[in-house]
Computed example of a mutant assay.
Amino acid sequence: MRPKIYLFGDSITEMSFGDGGWGASLTHHFSRAVDVVLRGYSGYNTRWALRVLDKVFPAEIDVGNAGEPLAVTVFFGANDACLPDRCSAFQHVPLDEYEHNLRSIVSFLKMRWPTTHVLLITPPPIDEAGRLLYPYFDNTSGLPERTNEAAGAYAKACIAVARELGIPVVDLWTKMQRFPDWQKSFLGDGLHLTLDGNRIVFEEVINILTREGLSLETLPVDLPHIKEIDPIDPLKAFKI
C-alpha cells in the first residue's frame, strides 16, 4: 500500500480538497507516490480536536497498512483565537490552553508514529472588515468575532510550540502579510482561503516536506512509469 500524508485541522483543512485547494494540490503533486488523506473538521478548535483524536486516528488504521504515515499536518488556531466576548465565544480557547493542546496533539501523534513528520501550521491573518461582511452566526455587536491581533498571538504561540518540540512550522500569519492587498488576495471572507491563499499554503508545505526529505525525487512510485514499459514486451515491467 502507498504511504500516507494526513491533513488534520479545521475548516481551512476541510475545504482544502475543493477546486484549487492546498490539499487537492498536494494530492495532485504526490499522485503517483503518496495518498493524501483529509481529516478536516469545520469549526473545530484544539480542545475539541483532542477529544476526537482516537476517532480521527484509531488504532485500527495501523493494522495491515504500509506502516507509519510519512507526515501529518496540524492546522488549528483560527477558531481557538475567536474572542471570548464576541458571537463565536463558544469556539474560543485561551492561549495557554491552546499551547498545551498543540503539545498534546503532537505527543499523541509521535507516540503513535515515532518516525512520522509532524508539521504545524499557524492560523492565517484575519481581515476584520471581511469578517463583518460574512458573519457565521448572528452578530448583533457589529464587531468582528476574530481580530488579526488575536490571530497573531496564536500564531506566535504555535511557532513557539514547534520550536520547543523541534518540529517544523509554517508561519502563515506572517507569510501572507508580506504581500500587498493580502486581505483580498488571500482571504475570501476574511478567514478562509482564496485560490492564491491556497497556493501559499501548498508551496509552504511542499517546501518543508522537501526539507524533511519527502519529495518526488526521494519517494518511490508504487508501479512502473509508462516510460519503463517495453513496447515489445509490456508485461515484463510487472514481473516480480
Results as ranks from 00 to 15, higher is better:
Val169Lys: 00
Asn65Val: 13
Phe76Ile: 01
Glu212Lys: 04
Glu164Ala: 08
Ile206Ser: 04
His225Phe: 12
Ser11Asn: 03
Ile208Met: 05
Asp181Gly: 03
Gly152Lys: 01
Arg103Thr: 15
His117Val: 13
Cys87Ile: 10
Pro168Trp: 03
Thr218Pro: 01
Asp54Ser: 10
Ser107Tyr: 03
Leu102Arg: 03
Leu109Glu: 05
Asp196Val: 03
Ser11Ala: 15
Ser31Tyr: 10
Lys239Ser: 15
Ile229Val: 15
Gly213Thr: 01
Pro69His: 02
Ile232Gly: 14
Tyr41Thr: 03
Ile200Gln: 11
Ala24Val: 00
Ile121Trp: 08
Cys82Val: 02
Lys4Ser: 13
Ile232Glu: 14
Glu149Thr: 15
Leu95Thr: 08
Leu172His: 02
Pro224Gly: 05
Lys55Asn: 10
Ile12Met: 09
Pro84Arg: 10
Glu60Met: 04
Asp222Glu: 13
Thr218Val: 08
Cys82Gln: 07
Glu60Asp: 12
Ser215Tyr: 01
Gly23Gln: 07
Leu120Ala: 04
Ser141Gly: 08
Lys236Ser: 12
Leu187Asp: 08
Ala59Leu: 11
Pro3Trp: 02
Pro84Gln: 03
Ala153Cys: 15
Ala81Lys: 06
Arg51Thr: 13
Thr46Leu: 06
Pro3His: 12
Gly67Ser: 05
Thr46Arg: 00
Pro124Trp: 03
Pro234Asp: 04
Asn101Met: 08
Ile12Gly: 06
Pro180Thr: 13
Ile226Thr: 11
Asn79Val: 01
Lys227Ser: 15
Ala33Pro: 00
Tyr134Arg: 12
Phe238Asn: 06
Glu14Pro: 05
Tyr41Pro: 02
Pro84Gly: 06
Pro124Gln: 11
Gly9Trp: 01
Ile206His: 11
Pro125Lys: 01
Asn101Arg: 09
His28Lys: 15
Val34His: 03
Val106Gln: 06
Ala150Val: 07
Thr115Ala: 11
Gly64Ser: 02
Gln177His: 00
Pro234Lys: 05
Pro94Cys: 07
Leu193Trp: 08
Val74Gln: 07
Phe90Pro: 11
Ser88Val: 09
Thr210Trp: 14
Pro124Cys: 15
Leu216Tyr: 08
Asn45Met: 00
Gly21Asp: 10
Lys55Ser: 12
Ile159Tyr: 03
Ser88Ala: 11
Gly130Trp: 13
Asp80His: 00
Thr218Ile: 04
Arg32Trp: 06
Ala153Leu: 14
Phe57Trp: 05
Asp222Ala: 10
Ala157Ser: 15
Trp173Ala: 08
Ala157Met: 07
Ile226Val: 15
Leu187Ala: 02
Cys87Thr: 12
Arg86Asn: 02
Thr140Arg: 13
Met15Gly: 07
Pro3Ser: 06
Phe202Lys: 03
Pro114Met: 00
Glu68Thr: 04
Ala129Thr: 11
Arg32Lys: 11
Ile232Tyr: 09
